[in-house]
Write a protein that binds this DNA or RNA. Structure first.
Lengths: 138, 138
DNA sequence: ACGATAATAGTAACCGTTACGGTTTGTTGC
DNA sequence: GCAACAAACCGTAACGGTTACTATTATCGT
């Protein structure tokens, strides 16, 4: 997702354009990986040393709900990344070393819904963990 | 997994048979669902009102490492259930209403490893969330 | 039954997250 | 551009699940 798309979604929902949100989106647009709330906070504190946790978490949660960010839980902490392809449903390989991700086009749900007749499927999570080629060679 | 199998694994690893562990295993053997650490604590407190968090978490972690329990993270809390089939790799549908689970035999990794040449896969998570037939009809 | 050592109780610290009251900032209509 | 209103923010404290520590107790091989 581009910055322009993100800002369009925000303005459509009457969210204001603030310096904090600019910094936050800029940070995510430059990283192709899941980032913890603390990593986000540390980056934003460079521009704005007194930034509040309230601001960090409120915006991360809002952006996640709007589909601007993707969220997942790694090691008991909330992690976020820029929504990479809102149109096409997909999953991720996540490098446990550097955190970088790689999209997986295949979705297992296609072949499974038949196995769950009588059940109401609301969602699913499919993530693969391991080492990416760069981290393997180091 | 049966209680006997669990105790065999424990004794093989020189873990002692204690009242707390008996209560804990009994509780899991009677529930076909993921239970939070707090649910476990509340149950065990009936027998042993002064039970320590240390005891709860140490045993849950130990049992999980030994493969007696399965562990997953739901809503930011650690949840555990009796290992249902240690031999055959499988995944779960998890009812978001009652917490009960249903095994899914199909594993998506079989069809995906080819897509990840150059990557070192260490693990994966595949969970389906929704409502089970019983909760739908209520 | 004894002694070595694992297991536990009681309690406090830890850490990521959430919540709150008061202040500042962005936007909208003039 | 300015006022007014609501949204967004800061500073800080509370919260909840988890982890850690020390002294005490229980288990098990001998």
């Amino acid at each position: 997702m581009t910055l322009d798309e993100a800002w369009r979604i925000l303005s459509e929902h009457q969210f204001k354009r603030t310096k904090n949100r600019e910094t936050l989106l800029e940070y995510f647009s430059e990283h192709d990986k899941y980032l913890s709330a603390m990593e986000v906070r540390n980056f934003m504190a460079q521009d704005n040393p007194g930034i509040s946790y309230d601001t960090i978490y409120r915006n991360l949660t809002t952006f996640s709900e709007l589909g601007i960010l993707e969220e997942t839980e790694l090691n008991g902490e909330r992690h976020f990344r820029m929504q990479c392809d809102a149109k096409n449903h997909h999953h991720h390989f996540i490098c446990t070393e550097c955190g970088k991700t790689r999209s997986i086009s295949h979705c297992p749900m296609e072949t499974i819904t038949g196995e769950l007749s009588g059940y109401e499927v609301e969602g699913h999570k499919f993530e693969i963990y391991g080492k990416c080629p760069i981290c393997i060679s180091q």
